[in-house]
């Protein structure tokens, strides 16, 4: 597991390895990275490396009783806090502090992992402050978050921040191609992360259809054909039914225009690699700023979508705006 993570997150793991080797592991870390980056996994192996009975250098074995208990969340000295409903409440932090005021059960160190730490309520976050800075017993705190902006400055200044880089696009594409989705691998890789369980592989048929819809739609848009509104009504809305699906659809549309731009700039990594001729043609018709404007329209539509705007009106507005543009 350690080695696998090291391949995925070389910088973070190198940082941790060195800290352990030099016996300079901090008492509080903030792990920051996009959804899908292995923050929790790293937090767990880090905990394992502190308890494992058969350490190989700094690498935990993953087989011994300690490692297995941590992996399954049964270790008495490794606590995990998850949001209770929408937020992490103050009483959860208080419970944690109470737990930690007892001497540790078995080992000298106690570890707590706060999942989605940005979801702490203001009072929970403030409550954890003093505890984070001056714990009574040796403690390792790991806060996981997708967005450090919503974390108190005072918490950040008490901890070391490690940023997880998203897995590179090419690795993701390669992985999807291995899984046998040659045609839409570049799209899937842009939409989701094959390293995590929540990927879109099950929906690949749906995406293949969505993809051809996008291609049809953009062509009609750029030809300024009035047909586009019928396509929207008959096909697009029938295919991208609810809000989440529509969001994916808009993403697909966004990637198309992003590709246009890439083709214009002579870049190679396309989301629609087999449509290069069509993309080239379109890139020729459109100026750089026209493409940028189209992307902006799509992104704006995505924002409206988040505000629960009627999806049909939203799409109609978007398409008309795309057609109006020079």
């Amino acid at each position: 597991m350690w080695h696998q993570l090291k391949e995925e997150q070389p910088v973070v793991m190198r940082m941790l390895e060195k800290s352990i080797e030099k016996n300079r592991l901090a008492h509080a870390y903030v792990f920051e990275g996009e959804a899908g980056t292995p923050k929790k996994e790293v937090a767990l192996v880090l905990a394992q490396s502190q308890f494992c009975s058969e350490l190989n250098g700094v690498v935990p074995c993953g087989m011994c009783a300690e490692c297995r208990r941590i992996e399954h969340g049964n270790h008495p000295d490794v606590l995990m806090i998850d949001p209770d409903g929408a937020t992490i409440k103050k009483h959860q932090v208080e419970e944690l502090q109470k737990q930690f005021s007892y001497k540790s059960m078995e080992a000298r160190l106690q570890v707590y992992i706060v999942n989605e730490a940005d979801k702490m309520t203001a009072s929970a976050a403030n409550s954890i402050l003093k505890f984070l800075e001056d714990p009574e017993s040796p403690t390792l705190a790991i806060l996981l978050t997708e967005n450090t902006q919503f974390i108190l400055e005072t918490i950040l200044s008490r901890s070391q921040k490690l940023s997880f880089s998203p897995p590179s696009l090419s690795t993701r594409i390669a992985l999807y191609e291995e899984k046998g989705t040659k045609e839409i691998a570049p799209l899937l890789a842009r939409l989701s992360n094959p390293f995590r369980e929540k990927d879109l592989l099950d929906m690949s048929d749906w995406i293949v259809q969505g993809r051809s819809l996008v291609i049809q739609l953009v062509q009609e848009v750029e030809k300024k054909s009035p047909q586009v509104l019928f396509t929207l009504q008959e096909k697009w809305l029938a295919h991208f039914k609810d809000r989440e699906e529509l969001e994916l659809g808009l993403d697909l549309l966004l990637f198309w225009y992003r590709d246009c731009l890439a083709v214009k700039h002579g870049q190679a990594d396309l989301a629609y690699p087999d449509q290069e001729t069509l993309l080239k043609n379109m890139a020729l018709q459109l100026s750089e700023s026209a493409i940028a404007m189209r992307m902006q329209q799509v992104l704006e539509a995505k924002r409206w979508l988040l505000a629960h705007v009627n999806s049909q009106l939203l799409m109609e507005r978007l398409l008309l705006r795309l057609q109006e543009g020079l």
Binding site: R14, M15, K18, S19, K22, R24, A26, R158, S159, Q160
Partner: peptide
């Protein structure tokens, strides 16, 4: 000092 700490480890 947190950053310095991290830098020393790194």
């Amino acid at each position: 000092l947190s950053l310095l700490d991290q830098a020393i480890s790194f």
